[in-house]
Design a protein around this nucleic acid. Structure first.
Lengths: 413, 413
DNA sequence: CTGTTAGCGCCTTCAT
DNA sequence: ATGAAGGCGCTAACAG
């Protein structure tokens, strides 16, 4: 039988992981974080993939090893030099026929070189090329958390555009820490990327911001391009989302739909994105004479789990006087939705809910989520275009507007 | 008013985008793909973020430019040489005090160097370091589509682990094309990464596989590590998910829950992941004397939209004889769920549904999705550990098992 | 412990 | 059109 107890004791899978753990890193498997996440959803049961019933010949969840003709791993990659020698031409000719821009090389030689390269499995060493010509073809992208659909959509846009421009993308995660962000920027600068894109909310009154700006400025002064995605607080080219106007529009739309009593779920007060959206929402309500008082604003993590938790807080506070909850982003809204559902509160029957971003799954939850649509992939694309466009003597700011999307989570009332 | 017509004509946002489009790339904004996606969900209405009502001073959705003291962008980054000179020491000393492993340098000199570096905003050129010491500190990760939560979770695991090991991750997307995958591997090899991780389903009978294996083998023979995530078809270290057993377990669990009449949604028959899961599921049913005939297997895209479309196909075929639908992955299952919902079919009342993977949002849809849990972040982590572990004379295969998670989408019946 | 000097793999004038 | 040689930024022997 499949019982909750099995899951909560988390014995089931751990044993499997233990076996498959890489020596020396064993402790990493002791308490897999993904198991911890299960705690707030106790209405599920887990079956141990029925191994007990399938006495498979091959042991599962373990690490197998068998002989393989492994080559001496000391050999190093073929170099241009090797190719030139193999083709019986000079280094310069090889270089020219393989990567040189203006083809001024005898077709026969060229063919010989290409053949030799093919034979040797030659791939130009990008680092060497970078250092020789003094410029790379990489884009460095910094996001808060790639597992968050907001960022993964933006990243998809960035990567897609970058690739079609022949650029390689390197990515780093700040885990929403300003310190880490600064540190990452420093590290990434070492790559001498052509472009450095910083995605993720800016912080208010950030003391590290000075250092960050300094770092980014230095990068820009030495030929790099930086693009910020989110707020226009930093003095660099920016793709900005109009959080304030979007939230305001949403508020007004909700009022138009008949809602009168609001609550809001926000992230840390230091996150500008959260702040702007809340203030915009407030302003929209105020325009219709509705005051969103502080006791109706719950602050939690800017994440799905934060939203889930906030739902609990709100329930504790009492929801009798509410008819709709606005979460400053979709993942929070969806988390809250699950929270309400697990608490037996009907959405949207008892409480309507709205978010912001229009992440991919917003339309797949039930009820489908009312939100402010942001064309996330295009934001990423716009960032690349901005970076690759000619650099004017001035700063460029692209403002992307949101569009309110009313869905089933906020029915007319 | 906000009416569907506004959305379908897609005039609303396009005008905004037009303004914010980067010159020369205008056409990219002509028909934003994200608008196209709206078509199959006609039960929503979009408001134009009320700009008509807010005569804001600053024009929205446009590109602003204003003067900025832009430095001559010709300057190049400070080099170690510069630092050494500035500090009045030799190149070697500077190198040693900044990056050298064993600190064997006079504390006073060290301080001087560090100060000079700070003053000059020096950052070591990673390319130069790479080429000088003959090894980089990057991990190249290839995924099908980073916007897919399955891959973004794996990527998060990879990035997190890599970063804590001091490695930088570069990422590329195949968009599920075998050709592109091969091409990307060739390009990425040029980075001379320490590790090359290939994520995403393998293909059956892939004619390009030979070339891919050749490329990867060459990479490995010259000191690189390659790790495959998915199937064990390729002769390299692998983190494998036991798709067959997981799907089989799910099938048996569903039978145990009282289900008797099944349908399945699969991806392209060339995708091993899809194939394995289907065959496992079939086997699980067969064990209980249930035959999943071909007319009950719908083949579509391995994506959310594929699932959505398949729901339509299934409805057209008729669902009277079905009581549960198994989709070979969660995004398809969730897409199908939306498809059924939009068609007015009650899930799970009329039709139950189950997926595979346990992506983050599986528990947030309503009803929460029954699935086979895969510890995705840990898969990414395991890949890094495998790659960074000592290289044995043999191939390593880590098999990650799934655990059936029964949720509300498949109530006992 | 510090400085000098070769390279690392490649591109790019500069002659030829 | 081709080849020889210098240099990109840095590290790693090697002397001192």
């Amino acid at each position: 039988m499949c019982v909750i107890a099995r899951l909560l004791s988390s014995r089931v899978d751990r044993s499997r992981f233990r076996e498959s753990a890489i020596s020396g890193l064993y402790q990493l498997y002791q308490a897999p974080p993904w198991e911890a996440k299960l705690e707030h959803n106790t209405s599920e049961s887990v079956c141990p993939a029925l191994e007990s019933e399938s006495p498979s010949a091959r042991p599962r969840g373990s690490r197998h090893r068998w002989r393989r003709p492994v080559a001496e791993p000391g050999r190093s990659p073929a170099t241009l030099h090797d190719v030139a020698r193999e083709a019986g031409v000079s280094l310069a000719t090889a270089s020219r026929s393989l990567n040189g821009s203006t083809r001024k090389v005898n077709e026969e030689y060229r063919a010989r070189v290409v053949a030799a390269a093919e034979r040797l499995g030659y791939t130009p060493n990008l680092s060497a090329q970078a250092i020789a010509k003094g410029s790379t073809s990489t884009v460095a992208l910094v996001v808060s958390d790639i597992a968050d659909p907001y960022f993964s959509s933006i990243a998809a846009g960035v990567i897609r555009s970058a690739e079609s421009a022949g650029l390689i993308v390197t990515m780093a995660m700040t885990e929403r820490s300003a310190e880490r962000e600064l540190e990452l920027v420093k590290t990434l600068r070492g790559q001498r990327p052509r472009v450095l894109i910083l995605s993720g909310s800016r912080y208010v009154g950030a003391e590290l911001e000075g250092a960050l700006v300094k770092e980014l400025t230095a990068f820009e002064e030495t030929g790099g391009r930086v693009v910020i995605i989110s707020q226009r607080e930093l003095p660099f080219d920016t793709v900005q989302t109009d959080n304030h106007a979007g939230a305001k529009a949403l508020a007004e739309a909700l009022v138009a739909e008949g809602y009168r009593s609001f609550a809001a779920l926000t992230g840390a007060s230091s996150l500008m994105t959260s702040r702007d959206r809340l203030s915009g929402f407030r302003e929209g309500l105020a325009a219709h004479g509705i005051d969103l008082t502080d006791d109706r604003v719950m602050q939690t993590d800017f994440t799905r789990d934060g939203g889930y938790a906030a739902a609990g807080q709100l329930i504790e506070r009492g929801i009798d006087d509410l008819d709709v909850v606005f979460a400053v982003n979709d993942v929070m809204a969806i988390g809250a939705m699950s929270g309400f559902r697990d608490a037996g509160i009907d959405v949207p029957g008892r409480l309507a809910i709205a978010g912001f971003d229009d992440i991919l799954t917003a339309r797949d939850v039930t009820p489908a989520l009312t939100t402010v649509r942001l064309p996330l992939e295009h934001v990423g694309q716009a960032a690349i275009e901005l970076a690759l466009g000619e650099r004017g003597g001035s700063r460029a700011v692209v403002t992307v507007d949101g569009a309110v999307v009313l869905r089933a989570s906020t029915p007319r009332r």
